[in-house]
Design a protein around this nucleic acid. Structure first.
Lengths: 337, 337
DNA sequence: TTGAAAGCGCTAACAT
DNA sequence: ATGTTAGCGCTTTCAA
């Protein structure tokens, strides 16, 4: 079933069929209708491989998702898909493991699908100019920025929150409510990614309040994973039964931490307060509802696409957009007397 | 950057480069090495559109996911991806809305990507032979089967649990523990899909126990959505404050229902028991842990790919595999005195 | 073991 | 307004 079959059955040439299919103006209404009828009858769908081959670019935007079962990304991807759809570009998603190298994955996708641009969802981003040299299309870092690298800001775009500052705010929120023994639950302190940034914000909040950070209040889970967070929280409780609050660097970790607290006989928030950053759907249904700083996930997705299209079509420059989070006051933080 | 560039730089013809790239035997070791070196140096990646165009089939398996933010599908898709990877086929995922027509989406993907086969994740499946006539490749229904349609079992494969029987078991579990006023929370009773099947199992369990089903113990949320489940559960509690247990047709609904119960001042399980079917990761972290019948999600994903490959490569026939669920005894069911 | 050339399905430039 | 045709990058005969 090719365009040729449609052409023959319609009694026109292939180019006419192509014109109809691509909404070119120079086709008589009569012919257009006839062709469309045949297309319908034959259930004809154009072969995308052939279509793409012809253009130097396949008019596709690649999306590299690092850490695939991260619920936080769900609405981001959803919105990215909607926005890409609107622009007429196609979307190619590639999911890679949490520890994998997104730049290599992006470069590979770029060439095999002949992408026009890339959006990275979650990454280390401590890349140097040499490392991104293999990327020949514009790219946007979505939900993070190049905090640890040496990239020229004109080399890429980013859409993110200020992880450092938001973490500082979250911990300050606890301090303002009388907490001093505040633990932090994260992946690793030096992952050159979200964990490290938010950890620095945690330290800063303590410092500003004149609280000496204590090593054994920092728990590294090693993985971005609920089971690891659960285990980590248990170790934390055992090590420091005197802690009164915990800041987790993600909602999903907070959900697992709350379970660990419960299993250790601690009530939230009476015996231990919990605060996080992210705002995933599920954390609305914990009991009590999680107090967390909500990232505008859908808006960030939209902005990432907008940034890329700006560069691709509208001759605009690279942008670095910072979003604010919004505090959702749940019931997991107690004010100490 | 095309195969031609590689050929020129290596001083060989394009066909030789092609042979190297496709592991054909008739290439001298010397030439092979030289070409590979150039490929590496140039960061050359073959253009997939051109590759696919040449074959009658693109050796791709399409996966249609209906209802994209369904956490239950996450491990299923993960495993499908792993298994497809192993076979050497490519994978093309298309996500559609919960209410959309998966057969049309599948047919469209089949033609545009020239698929070898299709896997449907979640569907209505009340299709008739005429409706699937537009599908020209073998397809597997994963996590459901054609319970409401008139399809010849030789026309398709399926991998599922016995939704009717498992629901009957779940409700029977409650009945055996003394519950009589058992509510059911579902999408709609006649969705020709999971809800309807599990609803029938619910009715059967009541019937077997000689309990008269009561209309106002059935709550239809209209959507597969946590917010809808939360609202539905609230209505249920208000309407029937005397209920002692609720069977939700999905874990995610149970999580929302537990929150609604809590917000209405009911304790789980002391005041109301909750049971479900699915076994998603998050329901391990509810407090108490959700009692649910776990579907072997990853195994089902693997089996779906296996069934398809069996047909595609090994000349095997269509299969209809039923998996058993496994009860996870959490803490959400109380035995009544 | 290697190269030359045809052709996959489509679009677009050119011709009519 | 419509048709003819070259060629996108690749694989695969066929020939050497």
């Amino acid at each position: 079933m090719t365009i040729k079959d449609v052409a023959e059955k319609s009694g026109v040439s292939v180019s006419t069929v192509s014109r109809v299919l691509n909404d070119h103006p120079d086709v008589s209404e009569k012919v257009r209708e006839r062709v469309l009828a045949v297309v319908d009858e034959l259930h004809y769908v154009p072969n995308n491989s052939a279509r793409d081959l012809i253009k130097s670019e396949a008019e596709t935007i690649g999306v590299i998702v690092r850490g695939s079962d991260n619920e936080f990304f769900t609405p981001v991807i959803e919105r990215i898909e909607e926005e890409i759809e609107k622009t007429g570009y196609k979307m190619a998603v590639s999911r890679i493991k949490a520890g994998a190298d997104e730049v290599t994955a992006g470069a590979s996708l770029e060439r095999s699908k002949r992408l026009s641009g890339l959006i990275f969802l979650g990454g280390c981003f401590d890349y140097t100019p040499e490392q991104v040299a293999m990327l020949n299309v514009p790219f946007v870092c979505c939900t993070y920025t190049n905090s640890f690298g040496t990239l020229d800001p004109d080399r890429y775009s980013s859409v993110s929150i200020d992880d450092y500052e938001e973490a500082r705010r979250a911990v300050d929120y606890l301090i303002k409510r009388g907490h001093k023994k505040i633990a932090v639950l994260l992946e690793t302190v030096d992952d050159h990614s979200i964990s490290q940034l938010r950890y620095k914000g945690y330290l800063r909040a303590l410092e500003d309040a004149g609280i000496r950070p204590e090593d054994d209040l920092t728990e590294e889970t090693g993985y971005y994973d609920m089971a690891a967070a659960y285990d980590g929280m248990k170790r934390l409780i055992e090590r420091r039964p005197d802690l009164t609050a915990v800041f987790t660097i993600a909602d999903s970790m907070a959900i697992a931490a709350m379970k660990a607290l419960h299993d250790c006989g601690r009530r939230v928030p009476e015996d231990c307060s919990v605060i996080a950053i992210d705002g995933i759907k599920t954390s609305l249904y914990t009991i009590p509802t999680l107090t967390t700083y909500i990232q505008p996930a859908r808006e960030m997705g939209a902005e990432a696409v907008k940034a890329l299209i700006g560069i691709l079509k509208d001759n605009k420059g690279q942008i670095h957009k910072r979003f604010d989070t919004k505090l959702r006051t749940g019931g997991t933080v107690k004010t100490l007397e």
